[in-house]
Amino acid sequence: MKARPYSAWISRVYIFAMAALAFTGMMQMPLAKRYYLTEVPGMAWTGDFFIVHKLHYIFAALLLFVIGVVVANWFLEWRDKLTLTPLGMARVGIVAGLVISGGLRVYRGLPDVTLDPIFVLTVEWVHLVLFMIMGGVALAALIKRCSAFAQAR
């Protein structure tokens, strides 16, 4: 593993949050029961849509915390020492799209909030498509062995 120009814990928490969000996001679709995942010992919870829904929110909060830390540090110090890689820049854009569409998704779920159905449909599919693109780009970054978002200037 190559050296990181910043703390490894940020990478680890980010990877954990993204992986957990990808998994709980997939489980928003009715797949766990159909594909027997609920019968794997310890995985019965994947078939409970409400639990999976809440976990998705909790992992989203964790990701947003990490993003907050990174953004603050970027403007305080890192931007003078680090530069985004091309694939890093692409993923920053995708994550931003996921955060915005996810935020709208959260807003939509609040009591007393009723949005236009076409808007809701757009938000859902943007979130879903960005998730798939993110998976593809992250895989490409891993294969090309340039998974870093940033490198030292």
Partner: peptide
């Protein structure tokens, strides 16, 4: 703080490993 910790031990090295 965390950045400095890594900066001291890994100064000058570039690239990192993330998903």
């Amino acid at each position: 703080k965390l950045f400095k910790t890594d900066d001291k031990s890994q100064s000058g090295k570039e690239d990192s490993h993330e998903s």
